[in-house]
Simulated assay, not measured.
Amino acid sequence: MRISDEDKQLFSEAIGKVKPMVVDTIHPVKTPGKSKSKLVEKKSSKQVAQFHFSDEFEPNLNKQGPMQYVREGVDSFEVKNLRRGYYSPDLILDLHGLDQHQAKKELAALLYACQKEHAQCICIVHGIGSHILKNKVPHWLVQHPDVMAFHQAPLEWGGNGALLALIELKDKFNRD
């Protein structure tokens, strides 16, 4: 379809004065991207930090007395040391105000951070509240391969509303 001279004139009057555009001759600089291996490594690290705990798993934990657990092959004396307060936590995680989904993610991230920060003892403050996290946190900890033992925390670290856990450190992470 052709545009008539009259339509061109009407268009020019409606637009007014027009200034021609200057052609931009600056070309974007290409920065070297991250190598594929670094991206894969970062992705796998993120997946490790998001360890998936099962809510259906029911470990055989002692229902009498304070909450405690010792992984098979770990000296039971370590639990006594946790109970007596011989270990002080290197990292503390407070789960107050979090729902189960958020608490699971935070706990997985904490266990991942233990390896990076070389934290052997951690404190997880779950609170008492309606006993949801108080019951779930031990079930999740039992499932993680790095958790050697845990015990209800001494009063100075939260007592009945917290757990102290011993973490097995691996040499796969370097301190930065």
Rank of each mutant, 00 (worst) to 15 (best):
H27M: 01
H27V: 14
I15Q: 09
K46L: 13
V29D: 00
A49H: 04
Q47E: 15
K30P: 01
K36H: 00
L39S: 02
I15N: 00
A49L: 08
A14E: 09
G33V: 04
D24T: 07
V48A: 12
S44Q: 13
K42N: 09
G33A: 10
Q50F: 05
F51S: 07
T25L: 13
S35G: 08
F51Q: 05
D24S: 12
V48T: 14
S45T: 02
K34N: 05
F51C: 06
V22L: 10
K17G: 06
L39G: 05
F53V: 11
E13C: 03
S35W: 07
T31F: 03
K43C: 03
V40S: 11
P28F: 03
S35Q: 07
D55M: 04
K42I: 09
P32N: 01
G16M: 12
I26K: 11
F53K: 11
S44M: 10
V23K: 15
G33D: 05
V23R: 13
K36Y: 06
G16K: 04
S35Y: 03
P32I: 02
P28D: 09
G16N: 05
E13K: 15
P20R: 13
T31V: 08
P28T: 04
S45A: 14
S54E: 12
F53L: 09
A14L: 15
G16Q: 05
K34Q: 02
P28A: 11
P20W: 03
F53Y: 15
V29A: 02
E13F: 02
K42D: 12
K38S: 05
V18W: 14
H27K: 14
T31W: 06
V40K: 12
I15M: 13
K34S: 09
V48P: 00
K17Q: 12
